[in-house]
Amino acid sequence: MHVPTPARILLIDDHRLFNDGLKLLIDEQPDLIVCGQVFRSTDALSVISTQQPNLILMDVNLQGVNGIDLGKKIIIDFPAIKVIILTMYNQAKLLEEARKAGLHGYLLKETTTPELLAGIRSVLLGDTVFDSNVTGQPAPAEDTFGDDFARRLNLTFREVEIIKLIKDGLTNEQIGEALSISVFTVKTHRKNIHFKLDISNVAELIQFAIKHGI
């Protein structure tokens, strides 16, 4: 398969620091160039039409939008474009959803730079790349990202992300830094989470996270 040089990469991730860091990393490669950065999912399709990337790196969590669903729409509307999910979610369920949706890869954000670049180049050449380090067990039918679960608890992807970081022991300040949001925004999300789940303390929240595999 002929790969244009440099191959045009579009980044779709609402974490600006991560998005910018990824751009710097890719632009150092002689055979790759970032042709655009998208921080809001609502801008994705228009930027794709304008920039015509060869490959898209995209998060799962895009301000409440499921990146896998967006990726599926992208490859339907733009079948020549390759799509790789790059996410913090180490969940076999999501990896399988990405594979079934016809996406070209699923990599964890904790992957090394050489592994990421090798994955990008492999997909550009026509292969797929699904991270072997995704070890999370497939979730039960009513899992965190299932439609029924979401309807009942009304949790957004951002709220699930914050629950995971709380379970991992991060403070509000650390969560804000990790997600590139203010401490005030973190506190607001935490109040909403407690209200939606009808819980009153961190211990109950951690129990919930463990129970649902977050």
Rank of each mutant, 00 (worst) to 15 (best):
L57F: 05
I74H: 03
T113H: 06
G71D: 04
G71I: 03
G102Y: 04
D59M: 11
D59K: 12
E115C: 07
G105H: 08
K73H: 04
N61Y: 01
T50W: 01
K72D: 09
T135A: 03
L107K: 07
K82Y: 03
G126T: 15
L62Q: 05
A141S: 09
E96A: 06
D31M: 05
P79F: 12
S41F: 01
I56L: 01
L25D: 07
K100V: 07
T42M: 05
E97H: 12
A139S: 14
L70V: 10
E142I: 00
Q51D: 09
G36Y: 02
F78D: 06
I85E: 02
V123N: 11
D27C: 07
T113K: 09
K73W: 03
L57V: 07
M58K: 05
A141W: 03
P30W: 02
K93G: 11
A139Q: 14
V123A: 14
R40A: 13
I48C: 03
G67Q: 12
G36F: 04
L86R: 06
D31L: 12
L57W: 07
S122E: 13
L32Y: 00
K73T: 13
L86K: 01
K100Y: 05
L95T: 01
T135H: 02
L108C: 13
Q51N: 09
L32T: 02
L107G: 08
L24C: 04
D77M: 05
F130V: 07
I68A: 08
N61M: 11
G102V: 02
H104N: 15
I84F: 04
K100A: 12
N54T: 01
Q63L: 11
S122N: 12
G71W: 03
A139T: 13
P138C: 01
S132P: 14
E28S: 14
L62V: 09
T112W: 09
T42K: 11
Q137C: 01
G105L: 08
I85S: 02
L25W: 11
V123I: 10
P140W: 02
Q137V: 08
P79N: 14
F130W: 05
L103N: 10
Q137F: 03
L94H: 10
I33V: 10
L125K: 13
R121F: 00
F39N: 14
I84Q: 05
C35Y: 02
E28A: 15
V38C: 15
D131K: 10
Q51C: 15
V134E: 06
V47Q: 08
K82A: 10
G119N: 13
A98Y: 04
M58Q: 08
S122M: 01
L124Q: 06
G126Y: 14
M88K: 11
D27L: 05
L25V: 13
Y89P: 03
V34T: 09
N133H: 14
E115Q: 15
V83Y: 03
G67M: 11
F130Q: 02
A98L: 04
N66F: 10
L70R: 12
P79D: 13
S49L: 08
N54Q: 12
Y106V: 05
P30L: 05
I74N: 02
L57H: 11
R99Y: 08
L24Q: 14
G64I: 09
R121M: 08
L24T: 13
T135V: 06
L103E: 12
P138N: 10
V60L: 13
Q91R: 13
